[in-house]
Amino acid sequence: MEEIQPILFVIFGLITLGAALQVVTRRNIFHAALFLILTFFGIAGLYVLLEAPFLAAVQLFIYVGGIAILIVFAIMLTRRMASPELDPVNRQWWIGAIAAVALFAVLGLVLLGHDWGQAAGSVPEDSIQLLGRTLLDPEGFVLPFEVASVLLLVALIGAVTIARERR
């Protein structure tokens, strides 16, 4: 299992990056949304490689099952504007491309120039239980946890209010 990890990383990485490139370059917005789902699958695979199975499952539930479907719904509701003859990029797209490539160059130089140290041991057997306890621990993340639930409620009500049909 240990030996094939780099191979799996390359496979999942290529799926993720290839699909992400398709997301940003496809003319048809619906195809872009489908490639976005493939990107999310690739990232879930990376989480499995990183021994974070809970996050891999959450990735599939929230992103593939939730956000991607929400995006597909929004595309369907605004269907008329997704016509192929519409230019998909704005006039300054080449400046955006240069900025993205320059950002990647800077990030790459910094990331490769720094010594990050060796991997520190293995993941404990009960890492998911530990995550749950940390989230609800008063010494840990219980306050952000509660604030997050309030944020989700506010976002839910806000989304319904904003998107509601005015009469």
Binding site: T16, I29, I95, A100, V101, L112
Partner: peptide, 30 residues
Amino acid sequence: LILSAALFCIGAYAVLARRNAIAILMGIEL
């Protein structure tokens, strides 16, 4: 780190260059 930097830059390009608001949201998700 390199992979996530590349993914971030791809998303940033989508935010900067795409015209469709939904495509920009997809870039933010990336």
